[in-house]
Design a protein around this nucleic acid. Structure first.
Lengths: 342, 342
DNA sequence: TTCAACTGTGTTCACGAGCACACATTACAA
DNA sequence: TTGTAATGTGTGCTCGTGAACACAGTTGAA
C-alpha cells in the first residue's frame, strides 16, 4: 500500500555501485560498464523509482518564462478576465520558478504580427497564445518547433497546426445547451420562431460560432422540429436595427458572441423575447440583472488562462504530459447565481 | 514587476546578520537581540519573503496524514463523489508529503461514533469530516483542540463548534437560484402553485434544507407574490403517495434533498409538472436524461472534498490561513450539459 | 572570585539529485 | 616499454532550509 520512495543512494547500495553510476544509467549519459548497467536496470525495474522532485527542483532551479500573448481588453471584459486567470496562476507558481511575460495586443492583424515577433524574440520557454489571427502563427510554429518550445492555444484552434494543448470549449455542445435552455424559456407553440445572431464578428475565423449554431439547430431538429430558426450575422447592431426586421413573432434570440448587450434596447422594446448569450462582461451582466437577458453562458476565460499556465508549467517542471485538448465546462448563469462567478 | 524570490542568505546579507539569526526571527525561536530583530524585520517587511518550498520540504520531509471521515456510499453517489475529490487531491499532493487515511462509515449513530473514535486514535495531522451526526463531534473537538489538529467540516455546520474551515453552500441563495429557474420553467399564470419537498430527511439536522426553502419562498415573494407555495416533508415518498394529494394544479416541484428521483413515477404521470432537485446521483441523472426532471443543482461534492484537502494541506505545509467558510458554487445542470460534470 | 547558566551569534550538517571532477583501470599506438 | 587516450567509477560540491551545535560574552548565585 504505502509505496516507499527510494533514493539514488539506496538504489546504489542495492545494485552495489555508486550514486554516480546509478545517475549515469538514469540519464543515459554512458560511461557505464555493461555489468553495472544490468545490475542497476534490474533494481530499477523491481522498484518504481521516482526522483524526489523537491531535490531535483532545488538543484536545477531553472527560472522558466512563459510568454502570454493575449488581446488587450478593458477591465472586466473577456480577455481581461483571461489575463486575470494567468496572473493568478503566476502568483501560485512563482515559487516554483515560473514567471510570465505579458504581451498584449490590440486586435489588428498588423499589431498581432508585431507583437508575435516581439514574443518570439524574447525566446521564452513556452507560449500561451490567443490566436485571433491564424496566418502569422504558422511562422511561430516553425520557429517554436525548431526550439522545441511548447505552445498552448486558447479559444480557437488553428487548422493544420497542433499545439501542445488547446484550451477551449466543445462549441457544438455549447450550442445544444443553449438550445435546451431556450426550449425551457420559450413557451411551447407550434409556430415558434427563434433567432441565432453572430454579433460583432470581425474576421473570417469564426468556425467556433458556426459550430455553436450547428449545435443549436441540431437540438431543435431532434427535439422540436417545428421550430423555425433564422440566422443573422452582422458586425454591428446598427446594420440590423436599420432593417425593418419584424421581431413580434420571435420568441427567443441566441447570440453566439459576447455582444448580446448590444440588443438591450431591442429587448426592452420586446420584453416577450427570451435572450441567451455568452460571457460575463460588465455590460452583459447588467442586462442579466435588469432582466433583458435571461441567461448567460460563461465560457470561463479566467479558468482558461489559469489552466493554460498550469498545464505548461507542469510540462516544464515535471515533463508531465498534458491533454491535447482541454475542453472546459460552460457555466449556466442567471441573475440569482451571478455573484457566484466573481 | 517580476518579484524576486529572496533566500535566507540574501536576507541575512541585507540585514547584516547571519542566516541563523534570520531563521530565528522567522521561526520566532527567540535568542535574538532587539537590534538584530528590528533589522531583520525591516527587511522582511520590504520584501515578501516566501521560503523555498522545495528546500523546506526536502529538509523537513514530514509526512502529513489527513484523516477523511466520509459516509460510505455506492459508486457514483453523493459521498462517493466527495471521496473521489479527496482522492484526486491526494494524488496531486502526494509529492508534497500529504497522505490521506480514509475512514468510511455507514450512516448510523453507533457506527459514526465507533469510526470517529478510530479516526482520533490514528492521531492524524488534520481531520476532514462529514458530520451526519453532531453530538459525537463535540468529543472530537475537545481532543483535537488539545492536540491542535485542524478540522474541516463538509456540508453541514455544527452549532457552537468552530471548525478551521467549513466547506458548503450558501443554502438560502441556492433556494433563490432554484426559484428563479422554476420561474423560467413554469408558464406565468395567476394561480400558479408550487411545491417544496424535503424528501428523505433522517435526523433533525436539516437546517440547511429550511434555508433553501426560505430562499425559494423569498424569491417568489419578491418577484411573483401571486404564486402559492406548499411545503411537504416526508422521510419516504410512500407516505406522500398514499395521501390523495391533488397534483393537477401543481406547476412545479422543488426538492431540497438529493432524493428527487423518488418522484419519477409521479412526474411521469403528470408531465406538466416542472421539477428541480439537487445532486448528480445516478438515479437523478437518469431522470434528467429522460426529461422527468428538468434541472438539477449540483452541489459539487467532488470539489468540496478536493478543496477541503487542499485547504488543510496548505495549512499544514505553509501555515497558510484559510477562509472560515468556503461557500462553493452551485452548478445548474440540464440534460445537455450533464456530461460536463463527470 | 569562580563557575554555571544564559544570551546572542555564527557555523555546520543533512536532505536528494545533478553534475563536475578526480581517480583507477584498461586499450592501443609510438 | 612508455605515453596517451578512452573508459569506468566514486567523491565532493551545490541548491535553500531547518535544526543542532559551537562559541564568545554576560549575568548571577554560591
Amino acid at each position: 500500500m504505502t509505496k516507499k520512495n527510494y533514493t539514488l543512494k539506496e538504489i546504489a547500495q542495492l545494485a552495489e555501485v555508486s550514486r554516480g553510476t546509478v545517475d549515469r544509467v538514469l540519464h543515459k549519459r554512458g560511461r557505464v560498464s555493461e555489468e553495472a548497467q544490468k545490475r542497476v536496470e534490474k533494481i530499477l525495474k523491481e522498484i518504481d523509482y521516482k526522483p524526489n522532485l523537491f531535490a531535483k527542483s532545488l538543484k536545477t532551479h531553472k527560472n522558466y518564462t512563459i510568454c502570454a500573448l493575449i488581446p488587450e481588453d478593458s477591465e472586466g471584459e473577456y480577455w481581461q478576465q483571461c489575463a486575470k486567470g494567468v496572473q493568478k496562476a503566476e502568483e501560485e507558481l512563482r515559487q516554483f520558478g515560473i514567471s510570465i511575460s505579458y504581451v498584449r495586443y490590440v486586435s489588428t492583424l498588423k499589431e498581432f504580427k508585431t507583437k508575435l515577433t516581439e514574443a518570439i524574440e524574447q525566446i521564452p520557454d513556452a507560449f500561451l497564445i490567443v490566436p485571433i489571427f491564424h496566418e502569422p502563427l504558422k511562422d511561430l510554429y516553425r520557429k517554436a518547433e525548431d526550439l522545441k518550445k511548447p505552445i498552448a492555444l486558447i479559444n480557437s484552434e488553428v487548422e493544420s497546426l497542433e499545439p501542445v494543448t488547446f484550451l477551449g470549449q466543445a462549441y457544438k455542445k455549447s450550442g445544444k445547451i443553449a438550445a435546451q435552455l431556450m426550449g425551457y424559456l420559450t413557451p411551447p407553440q407550434q409556430d415558434k420562431q427563434l433567432l441565432v445572431m453572430h454579433l460583432g464578428i470581425k474576421s473570417g475565423h469564426a468556425s467556433h460560432l458556426t459550430e455553436k449554431e450547428d449545435g443549436f439547430r441540431s437540438y431543435f431538429a431532434a427535439h422540436h422540429p417545428y421550430v423555425t430558426i433564422k440566422t443573422i450575422s452582422s458586425t454591428s447592431i446598427e446594420d440590423f436595427v436599420d432593417t425593418d426586421f419584424d421581431l413580434s413573432h420571435i420568441a427567443g434570440i441566441y447570440v453566439t458572441t459576447s455582444k448580446i448587450h448590444q440588443l438591450e434596447g431591442i429587448l426592452k422594446k420586446h420584453p416577450h423575447i427570451q435572450a441567451i448569450g455568452y460571457d460575463l462582461t460588465a455590460k452583459n451582466t447588467t442586462c442579466l440583472k435588469n432582466g433583458t437577458v435571461k441567461m448567460l453562458l460563461n465560457q470561463n476565460p479566467e479558468l482558461q488562462g489559469h489552466q493554460g499556465i498550469t498545464s505548461l508549467s507542469e510540462l516544464l517542471l515535471y515533463s508531465k504530459s498534458i491533454p491535447k485538448r482541454n475542453l472546459l465546462r460552460v457555466d449556466i448563469v442567471v441573475a440569482e447565481n451571478l455573484d457566484e462567478f466573481s
